[in-house]
Write a protein that binds this DNA or RNA. Structure first.
Lengths: 381, 381
DNA sequence: TCCTTTGGTTAGGACTCCTTACAATGGGCT
DNA sequence: AGCCCATTGTAAGGAGTCCTAACCAAAGGA
């Protein structure tokens, strides 16, 4: 399993892969520099660059080095290598970007939606945005990564409605919508999971292999990062914590989401949390606000206790409209410190984390696609 | 990261790796058979076998093929390749085996312990068992995998005592004990995690990538399998569910372990569950037994709800002295089916699952060590 | 102008894998 | 017994990849 069949073709593709990866990291390099960076000899690099240029994957940028010694010519990834689509779908709008293999955002578009516009409007906005970017990008869209503000079925990429949880965007199938506009794979996951990835990459959990990201906003969500990856579970619903049992206002065990119903903090006729009402009820200095805050903190810590028990995180990052507020994070942190197995609680830091996280995955996917084109294909039987 | 530096040496090592892996799978093969199995040409295989034989990794078994055509000579992994130690430590004794790269148990020893013998006796028994096996195995012990009936610190391999949880074996450091007797790495994990691995390999969760294994015996434990691997968490304490909040007998939220205290089902002066008392109280046909059983089922399902929320398993496998009893598994299954996100519950099936699981990992580790010896080593700077 | 420094190529060799052909050898069949 | 043939293993030759060493090319500085 772990060892490919050896062949000279494999060896050559490995050399080419080294060259491409070096240029993904460093944008532009001369052949001598590539040789230095990769540790491969100069003649071999020259061969590889010739091959890749002829194949259209690399191009001579025309620029030349300055300084002592002979001027060398810079090479770079070809400009027609296409881009990856990154899209974020929330009830209030669709944001879409195209990122290239360097990780640069090369195009962007957005469409606002009425909060209650519903599924069809969101679908249309997504299709329009993707179409626009596709037309603007030389080389087209080679893969897509989508963030959606609802749970996502891992097998199909469709948004799913869970009982007792708000269904913000609605029954949408991003894969169906994007497949005609994107050449390669379309990956869909919910915003909380992408946000966790962002916090691991450049936020409060930078480089932490095991942590939990709690999203406390209109919806309640959680991402579990274990061994350096967001773990999605069988259906892709890992982290959907609405039905997790936790202590309610009077101490009885109840599903997490019901705590908010008991406190009257849900929006009318909905299972979504009324964030304004919650802030008003829990964030003041008064005695009553303190009581509500304590009840919320205890309920959240019930969830954290479950996460500690099952996932053993090194820390808990809290995000979301009310969870990341200093008052709340502090209250949660104090309450969690009392638990038999305490765990640090910090507020999330990254802006538009779902976009940052999805973008990171998109760049990875695009690079992988570019490199995969080289690999020897076993003769199809 | 993902692509090694290409060289002819790498190519050769890949060929040798293919040969070794083929012989690990099929025990003995002629050179022609290796060529057929790996898809590599006969002359190349002959070269590789010559190299590996000279290096002492392979040996001509002396046997020959029979049948039509010229008789070929069989080759096999060399007998001095050593073995991996597999050890299981429980309060009632130590079991140790040596397994070779084929996965065969080539030696075994065991020592019974008094239930309250304590740490020092367990340490001595482990050292003695490892020493004995080491002496009996040509090539020695090249790695060790240990199962312990207590939580294990992932970074150090030491057994740790958690609050409100029984500490069955006691403060033991298997790495310290075994390092002098084992040439390579020593890996320690708790029995529940190894049991889950066994259920995935050959039990009720065969081939399932995402599931949860619940151990309900004297202690309470859980293993989380996500994306085909047991996930241990930052400290290695993922699955230590004693403090998970769940509904108690009267409906109040309380730590899982306290449910048993409330029901009077703990052993006197201990946090361990009195399995005999539990069976007596919950497994009869009477009305009272039914009531206790229902309370237990509801508490367990609170834990399952947390696992469903955070890990999204495809199924739950229940093991342990009372959990795997048909009465209990059935009650749990019925209760869990009522939850908003139901999940199938089945009883564990594998015998001595902690040994089976640890053995699987040991064979993998030993094979990896054998193969790793071939790989080109980057020139140390 | 010449020297130094750096980029890139040429030449030759070592090595690995493959295909093709062939030698070796044991069983089955007449 | 002797022939056929299926099968194993080796030999020869060739293609391809990488490397080292040496060399040519060109730009900046003394």
């Amino acid at each position: 399993m772990s060892s490919a069949k050896p062949s000279l073709e494999l060896l050559r593709s490995l050399t080419d892969e080294n060259v491409l990866r070096a240029l993904m990291e460093r944008r532009r390099l001369t052949r001598a520099e590539i040789a230095a960076v990769t540790g491969i000899s100069k003649p071999t690099i020259s061969d590889s660059v010739r091959r890749l240029s002829r194949a259209g994957l690399l191009e001579d940028t025309g620029e030349r080095t300055t300084g002592r010694g002979r001027a060398g010519s810079y090479y770079s990834l070809a400009g027609n290598g296409g881009a990856a689509l990154v899209a974020s779908i929330t009830p209030s709008g669709v944001t879409a970007e195209a990122v290239d293999a360097f990780g640069d955002v090369v195009a962007r578009t957005a469409a606002e939606l009425d909060r209650n516009a519903g599924r069809d409007r969101a679908a249309a906005a997504l299709a329009r945005a993707a179409g626009e970017l596709r037309a603007r990008i030389r080389g087209g869209l080679r893969t897509a990564v989508v963030s959606a503000a609802d749970p996502v079925d891992r097998a199909t990429g469709r948004l799913v409605h869970l009982p007792d949880a708000p269904f913000l965007v609605g029954d949408l199938d991003p894969v169906e919508i994007l497949s005609p506009l994107v050449d390669g794979p379309v990956l869909v996951d919910n915003d909380v999971n992408w946000a966790a990835r962002a916090e691991r990459g450049e936020g409060r959990a930078r480089g932490v292999d095991d942590f939990v990201y709690l999203h406390l906003g209109e919806g309640l969500g959680c991402a579990v990062v274990n061994d350096a990856e967001v773990r999605r579970g069988h259906h892709g619903l890992a982290g959907e914590i609405a039905h997790l049992y936790t202590p309610g206002p009077d101490g009885t065990a109840m599903p997490f989401t019901r705590v908010f119903a008991e406190l009257g903090l849900r929006r009318a006729g909905s299972t979504a949390i009324d964030v304004e009402a919650l802030r008003a009820a829990a964030f003041g200095a008064g005695e009553e606000a303190g009581r509500v805050r304590a009840v919320l903190a205890r309920a959240v810590c019930g969830v954290v206790a479950a996460a500690v028990a099952l996932a053993d995180p090194r820390l808990v990052v809290v995000g979301g409209a009310w969870g990341a507020a200093p008052e709340m994070t502090e209250a949660i942190g104090e309450e969690c410190a009392k638990a038999p197995r305490g765990v640090p609680v910090v507020a999330a830091r990254v802006e538009t984390p779902e976009l940052v996280g999805a973008r990171g995955r998109a760049v990875e996917g695009l690079r992988e696609l570019i490199v995969a084109a080289l690999r020897p294909t076993p003769p199809t039987p």
